[in-house]
Amino acid sequence: MSYQEKKNIVSLISTILIFGSYCGAVYVRYNDANLAGAELFRFWGAVILILIPVTIVAKVIIEIIFIIINRIATKEVEPSFADELDKLIELKAMRMSYFVFVLGFLLAMVSLVLRMTPSVMFVILIFSGFISDVASSVTRLYHYRKGV
């Protein structure tokens, strides 16, 4: 298995773990909270704004740990640059990621039209962000394994 494949598997697992842990923590802490009106929007705004840096920091830490463990275990040095194949795969992954997120965004708007609660809209938005990240990793993994 190549370095890029291993890196994407780690990225996929870390995305699922970080998002799952964060959602679990938010659910346990605010499950009983009875929020309405402006407070509800403030809550969801905070949930999204905190999720972004938490995800970035956790992913960076996990990637550093992966690089160290991989270097010790396989003596393999990570590529120091992205070549044309890497850039092409990255573009395909980004396109898939945007496509999935836009679908989720539209679904969130549909939930508002159908008079669902704002919480449903925010949950769909957050999940579409998560699914788009997973789709990006899966697309990269697929193209590294099967070719372009």
Binding site: P79, F81, D83, E84, L85, D86, Y144, G147, V148
Partner: peptide, 13 residues
């Protein structure tokens, strides 16, 4: 390029 790219070219991927 990276070695991975040469591998992919050789395999016709």
């Amino acid at each position: 390029v990276t070695r991975q790219t040469i591998v992919a070219i050789e395999k016709g991927k």
